[in-house]
Amino acid sequence: MKILVCVSNVPDTTTKIKLSGDMHSVDLANVQWIINPWDELALTRALELKEASEGKIEKVTVMLVGAKSAEPTMRKALAIGADDAVRVDAEPLDAYFVAGQIAGAIKDENYDLVFCGIESSDYNGSAMGSMLSEFMNIPSVSSVSKVEMDDDQIVVNREIAGGFEVVVPELPFVAIVQKGITKEPRIPSMRGIMMARKKPLKVVEASGLEALTEFVKYEPPQPKAACKMIDADNVAELVDLLHNEAKII
């Protein structure tokens, strides 16, 4: 069995977002780049499954669509434990473009399970994993909060209102995972970092697929009005304000 984990390269979640002077782009100079947090959890879970599979899962591959500058993120994924990595050499223009590029790059690879994070912390697309499953014409399960291997089957929990459904999809399928899938992202060990030097990182050409959307302009958020303070001994005033002023209850 082979697992593919799709990762994206995003600014660290503590980054203060600065816009360029003309507001046409985000100023990404001096940004620290990380693996998208959901993707990192997915990778960690994929590796846990592989280690527990007694050889049934032969390899975990990470895939990224991005420029060469994203390679440190990929080598980190290799250091964490992925067996190999593939980069499609193109700027990730939108989710449709990325999903299409990945689908094209892996069409001869026969991955049994594809992991994607439920969203990315940069452009907040939440679309790539589902788009990829559609490009590949295979099932997908979204909002996945647990993945287990049961013999040759993969069993997942899908979060729903008030609980979860246990879903058994036919392989191959795309699991779009959220927080809770594993306890915390794995930190690369010294051995892992050392071994990452020798692991393959393949670069493939992008196909001619075009993006369907384009980011044209950015705006900073509107400043918020000052917080109205209420005395701790007068909670009734809060109820009153929420009811009569905010009209929210």
Binding site: Y96, E119, S126, A127, G129, S130, M131, L212, T213
Partner: peptide
Amino acid sequence: SNSNTSKALAPRVSVKLKAGMVFA
């Protein structure tokens, strides 16, 4: 909407129809 179900469905519709999608 931007519910979990929409996250699961809208992107698939996008690919099926080659329709550009804006989330959130």
